[in-house]
């Protein structure tokens, strides 16, 4: 059941990315190109997704436990620090350069295998790099 939920969630996510135009890096780049030929589509994607998720959070508050697991495991950190802001800013640079964030990149592995794989392999290398520096700083 739990596994089915993972697969179903991933498939819905991938389908949403495909119909929304978010698997087109040039369109995502267009959203970030505010000073140029701005394309507001991404704002509608975020709007639709946030709307549904806001309802889901309302339901979540009334549920003692999720359907297929024993408890909710949600981020509880409240600290806003340089790691959060700097990490997000770094991610933004990558997003702006390639027009890709992790979801569309992974989703494109079948439909646009070569460029998506170049991005995803590099992304994994970046994650490994973080893991190594994290180990060193502790």
């Amino acid at each position: 059941m739990r596994h089915l939920i993972g697969l179903l969630s991933g498939m819905l996510f991938g389908a949403g990315l495909a119909i929304s135009g978010m698997m087109d890096p040039s369109r995502v780049r267009g959203f970030l190109d505010v000073a140029g030929n701005w394309d507001p589509t991404l704002a509608f994607v975020m709007g639709g997704a946030v709307l549904v998720m806001a309802l889901a959070w309302l339901v979540q508050r009334r549920m003692p436990a999720p359907v297929a697991c024993e408890e909710f495991s949600l981020p509880g950190t409240r600290i806003i620090d340089g790691k959060l802001i700097g990490g997000a800013a770094l991610f933004g640079i990558g997003w702006g350069l390639g027009g890709l964030c992790p979801g569309p990149a992974v989703a494109s592995l079948v439909t646009n295998p070569v460029p998506a794989a170049v991005f995803v392999l590099a992304m994994v290398a970046g994650m490994v790099g973080f893991r190594l520096t994290e180990g060193g700083s502790k």
Binding site: G87, A88, A89, L90, F91, G92, I93, G94, W95, L97, G98, L100, C101, P102, A105, V118, F119, V120, L121, A122, M123, V124, A125, G126, M127, V128, G129, F130
Partner: peptide, 8 residues
């Protein structure tokens, strides 16, 4: 872009 995205 991928490298920066992964780390960031």
């Amino acid at each position: 872009a991928g490298l920066i995205t992964g780390f960031g």
